[in-house]
Nucleic acid binder design. Structure first.
Length: 480
RNA sequence: GCCGAGGUGGCAGAAUGGUUAAUGCGACGGACUGCAGAUCCGUUUCCUGGGGGUUCGAUUCCCUCCCUCGGCUCCA
């Protein structure tokens, strides 16, 4: 296992990552509440933790990645009522769409997507423990509240002081609570809502309790990594700590808290009321998965990132086109000739460089998942290959594979440089040269209209032609 | 008000107590080209919010001020 450092939001320091039961790693990431289509902000968080997981796995850690699905809460119930559908069915539908979008984005690292409503027994057990240990109390209407004053550590994660919260006065006065900062763990049911029986009467889980009930069940009373967006630190993650540590007595619940920076939209927070929400599917349609992933990963994961459809995204698209240029060309050559392909060996300036370079990539990323620095290195590799003036077309399979190695690393860890390979590429390899030959003849006799027609026809199906001194080259246009 | 993150070149955005302040995008000039694209060469060599302080030396450390953004129980 490689030495990895991780910045922990709770202790506010970067420490060497030491799992409780190496090489196993328990990772829990707060997923979305599927009451509306996923937006590009959700996707940033998911790509960040996808890369964390891919990297740890590459380095020998056995990561069990759990991402919860809050398939029942106030928003879902309200939205379902608007649409006149069952809230659980609404959640199911949006979750399916979310999964499909994640597939398009190349996020395949999650092991388990547990649904909140499948953990009601665990939730009831945990609430009973909290009441028994004096951390929670029952309200007259059958709701159960966590009593923040009973948990001295409350506020440690976010740096909030309870006294400081009260003057904020955004908390509505609620007669059922002993203090304004107390939060609900069990909500007495309102007629028409889904509800479950409990010792305190029919009701449904509060927002925070599902996570701790799931984590204790799936990852244990203490586990290694918890991720999520920065906006969840308070109160959600604060509440998780209070609930889990209160219920089990084991502390700390989580050894390393990782929070991803929020995505802004043209400089301000995305919100539905401002109408500045970009859906993930729309962004995938417009920019493609590779551009989006590069865009997300080309920023430090804790920094805010500005989603600007006319500036930052087109820039990312240009940057990706350059970065992936050698990767795509080498992949296309390997797909056609295969790894056994005959040809020249690498020039001395490039020979043996790749293994050391890949090691540098790993070492760089292992410093608190510095994807940006790793990408800067990959740009350096691209520049080195382009400036070397090597004739790709003449290289042997093993030589090409060596040049491709850093991009394979990028593919494995960052999820970049995907593209058609195997059979699909093979079929194109039969057809495209025929079209190129026809175009070359047309150009030779000066029939440029015909030549352009052929080029455009191929472009329409995703094959890009480029002429240079050696003739016409083709490649797959970066797939959107 | 409280908590937190920031203010770096035309833009995005790194890094470091001290040689030419990463990387990318963009721009300009040139090569190549039927066109386009890609690539290459050159230029963008006077960029670190204001003011103090520590230091031989600060963009980097300390203090202060100004400004921006986020959180403060809907939130990835």
């Amino acid at each position: 296992m490689r030495r990895v450092t991780v910045y922990d939001s709770r202790t506010r320091e970067t420490r060497v990552f030491a799992p409780i039961h190496p090489p196993r790693v328990g990772l829990y990431v707060c997923g979305m509440t599927p009451y509306a289509p996923a937006h590009v902000g959700h996707a940033r968080t998911m790509v960040v933790f996808d890369v964390v997981t891919r990297a740890l796995r590459r380095w020998g850690y056995r990561v069990f990645y759990v991402q919860n699905v809050t398939n029942l809460d106030d928003k879902l119930i309200a939205r379902a009522a608007d649409e006149g559908v069952d809230p659980l069915a609404l959640a199911e539908r949006h979750f399916a769409a979310y999964r499909a979008a994640m597939e398009r984005l190349g996020v395949h690292s999650v092991n388990l997507y547990p649904f909140a409503t499948d953990y009601v027994p665990e939730i009831l057990t945990q609430i009973a423990q909290l009441i028994e240990r004096g951390f929670a109390y029952r309200a007259p209407d059958g709701s159960v509240y966590f009593e923040v004053a009973k948990f001295p550590g409350y506020g440690a994660l976010s740096g909030q002081k309870i006294e400081a919260l009260r003057p904020g006065a955004r908390v509505e006065r609620d007669e059922r609570k002993r203090a304004p900062e107390d939060f609900v763990v069990w909500k007495a049911s309102t007629p028409g809502e889904p509800s479950w029986d409990s010792p305190w009467g029919p009701g449904r889980p509060g927002w925070h309790i599902e996570d701790t009930a799931m984590t204790v069940r799936l990852l244990g009373e203490r586990y290694d990594l918890h991720g999520g967006g920065l906006d969840l630190i308070f109160p959600h993650h604060e509440a998780e700590i209070a609930q889990a540590e209160g219920a089990t007595g084991a502390a700390p619940l989580v050894n390393y808290w990782m929070h991803s920076g929020l995505l802004l939209f043209e400089g301000t927070k995305m919100s539905k009321s401002l109408g500045n929400v970009a859906t993930l599917d729309g962004a995938l349609d417009e920019y493609g998965a590779m551009t989006l992933r590069l865009y997300y990963l080309n920023a430090h994961y804790r920094s805010p990132l500005d989603f600007d459809p006319v500036k930052s995204l087109p820039e990312a698209r240009e940057a990706y086109a350059r970065l992936a240029q050698p990767a795509d060309r080498i992949a296309a050559l390997l797909a056609r000739g295969g790894p056994e392909r005959e040809g020249a060996e690498l020039p001395a300036t490039l020979a043996d460089a790749a293994p050391a370079f890949v090691e540098r990539l790993d070492a760089t990323l292992a410093e608190d998942f510095d994807t940006r620095a790793a990408i800067a290195l990959l740009f350096g590799w691209t520049r080195k290959l382009l400036e070397s003036g090597v004739n790709w077309d003449d290289l042997s399979g093993p030589a090409l594979a060596e040049l491709r190695a850093p991009y394979d690393w990028g593919s494995e860890v960052l999820g970049l440089f995907g593209g058609p390979t195997g059979d699909a590429a093979g079929a194109w390899a039969e057809i495209v040269p025929v079209a190129i030959a026809a175009r070359t003849r047309a150009r030779a006799r000066g029939d440029f209209a015909e030549a352009d027609r052929i080029r455009e026809a191929l472009a329409a199906v995703g094959v890009r032609l480029e002429d240079d001194a050696r003739g016409t080259r083709w490649s797959f246009a970066s797939a959107p």
